[in-house]
Amino acid sequence: MTASTTTAPHERRSPLMTALTVVGWTVLIVFAALEIFPFVFTVANSFKCLPAVQSYPRSIIPVPPFGAECQTETGAARSPGEVSGAVTFNPTLEGYEEIADANLPRWLYNTAIFAVAITIGRLIFDSLAGYALARLKFPGNRLVFYTILGTMMVPAIVLLIPRFIILKELSMLNTYQGLIVPLAVDAFGIFLMKQFFESIPNEIEEAAMVDGANRLTMFFRVVLPMATPALTALAIFSFQGAWNDFLMPLLILSGDSDLWTLTLGLSFLRGAYGETLRWHAFLAGSVLTTLPLALIFFYFQRYFVEGVSYSGLKG
């Protein structure tokens, strides 16, 4: 990090500049608040009793007693006024207990398996395919590349039924591999990797070749380590995409609730019509769905920004 030049001590700032800065900050703060508050409300309401979510959705400050009881001794719902006010509320874990009972640990586990497996698959196969298309000369090279590129133009929804039928014929519906295998390679990733490999100077590979490396050694020992920025971008996109995917899991896994992902589970909790939606449990599930991804994001934030700017330049 280098010191910012705008804060140099002897620089004079015109009133106009100051005003602009203030306006700029105000705008930024307003938009940051707009982005953050929905999440604050989600977290706050996930810790309320169900009636309190309805009557006092805007209270965001938790106050003791913690672990408030949501039911009276007779099992009826307690009045929302007893556990919440306009600004404060007594937090409870009822929503989290409900969602834990609703098989959430299993959904979390499944989602993690899918996201990790799909990400690993894409890192391996996309980079191999991208490298082959970038470097190997074989008949039909360009045809293959444009065909792969072409599949990106087909809206995913069009492939819904054909995909379902193919997987059914292969007896892969309602299995882990049914979701992982079709998603373990994707056209965007191949494209991304190919473009990156083409930007690596040929001379480096020629030098490795002179030192006696064969193609595969060269790929894994020389080329791949140089491709870290592209691989990071690919990993982040794949992981996030797989974690949040709804349509494919719905199509492939909906028959076996033990294989459901978080997105399917949350949608299931919402019910068919929404009137029966138990907000506190639903929001608790949303928090738990977001949390792992958010933590990964914070941890890899630097790479993520790099990855986005990289793919933004090239893609």
């Binding site: 379902f164 199509l251 609730s257 949608s267």
Partner: peptide, 19 residues
């Protein structure tokens, strides 16, 4: 027993595939 989210989508796919 299969209680599914997004019932209409799921059952349409099932009808279409003959399953």
């Amino acid at each position: 027993v299969q209680l599914v989210p997004e019932y209409d989508t799921t059952i349409q796919a099932a009808f279409a595939s003959g399953d």
